[in-house]
């Protein structure tokens, strides 16, 4: 018995299955099954109390298309994603370009810009909510003292809430984009810049004609990963506005959470919206994954 077991340790193919077993079991149980079930549940009438479980066909999807709150959440999600990602990539690019060197100042500044990436959104939400509070907040106070503008209440005003959520997210995440782009810029051969300098190209010209074209793969990567991430935006909304005011910051994942895990606990409908979100995300991410896997081969 023991000698047989020992023999196993010397067989590549046998050991491979042993090595894979834990991961495969876990992924099958907690990723593959939920994935299949999310499609199944989306065509079911199912709530958390199992009160009236039956096949519903495409009713949940049709319900979404006729649901004003779904369209509002979709609109907010797209608005958030487009504005947040553009800002993050532009700011990240400019700062990465300025700080790609190895000087002490550059390295220290990069360390500082990465600090918010490490912090949890729950903590960041507390900080920004209080800093921007209309009555005791320090930022509204500064704005009043320096620019004479009063009555700002950021997260609590339907006109500024989404903008504030976006600003907070850019503040937290631009260090991530910057870090990727710094690696990309450092990989550009320095001869390119030296040759351009000899030809009399200015810093700005070098930026547009060397840095950006050479950086396109990294920029594409940032753009897509940020886009996928921001289409799933939830944390920042949950900890600051709760989707308000007047549902101006209610995003798709937040809406899914609200329908599925709070009253009315409608799991079928929440799953249908999840499936719609999955389709959008896959349409954006599949080409990137294929490229990434090809690069691996």
């Amino acid at each position: 018995m023991i000698s047989k077991l020992k023999e196993y340790w010397y067989r590549q193919d046998k050991v491979a299955y042993i090595f894979l077993a834990p991961s495969i079991v876990i992924l099958f149980m907690f990723a593959f099954i939920p994935l299949v079930c999310s499609v199944v549940i989306s065509v079911m009438n199912l709530d958390i109390f199992f009160s009236d479980v039956r096949f519903a066909g495409l009713a949940n999807f049709l319900k979404a298309f006729g649901d004003e709150r779904f369209w509002n959440a979709l609109k907010n999600t797209v608005l958030f994603a487009v504005v947040e990602v553009s800002l993050q990539v532009v700011i990240g690019l400019l700062i990465a370009n300025a700080l790609s060197g190895t000087a002490l100042f550059s390295r220290m500044a990069r360390s500082v810009f990465f600090v918010p990436v490490v912090c949890s959104m729950a903590a960041i939400g507390i900080v920004w909510s209080l800093l921007l509070d209309g009555t005791i907040g320090m930022i509204p106070y500064f704005i009043k003292e320096w620019f004479g503008i009063t009555g700002l209440s950021f997260f609590r005003d339907s006109g500024t809430a989404m903008g504030t959520v976006i600003a907070m997210t850019v503040w937290k995440n631009f260090g991530y984009t910057m870090s990727i782009l710094v690696v990309g810029i450092q990989a550009i051969p320095t001869d390119y810049f030296e040759a351009a300098k000899i030809d009399g190209a200015s810093r700005v010209q070098q930026f547009f004609w060397i840095t950006i074209p050479q950086l396109l793969p990294s920029l594409g990567f940032c753009l897509i990963t940020n886009l996928i991430g921001s289409l799933q935006v939830f944390d920042q909304v949950y900890v600051t506005t709760g989707g308000g005011p007047q549902r101006k910051t209610e995003t798709l994942v937040y809406y899914i959470y609200k329908i599925g895990f709070t009253n009315p606990f409608d799991l079928g409908y929440a799953s249908a919206i999840s499936v719609l979100l999955l389709i959008v995300i896959l349409a954006i991410s599949l080409p990137v994954y294929f490229k990434m896997f090809k690069a691996e081969e």
Binding site: L27, A31, F32, I256, S274, L277, L278
Partner: peptide
């Protein structure tokens, strides 16, 4: 090997938010 690896990659492409309701039920 290839078949199992493709299976693993498939689960990588699906964001958590999409499968949270079935995962909760499970």
């Amino acid at each position: 090997k290839n078949l199992i690896f493709i299976g693993v990659l498939m689960t990588m492409m699906v964001p958590f938010q999409v499968m949270m309701i079935p995962l909760f039920l499970e």
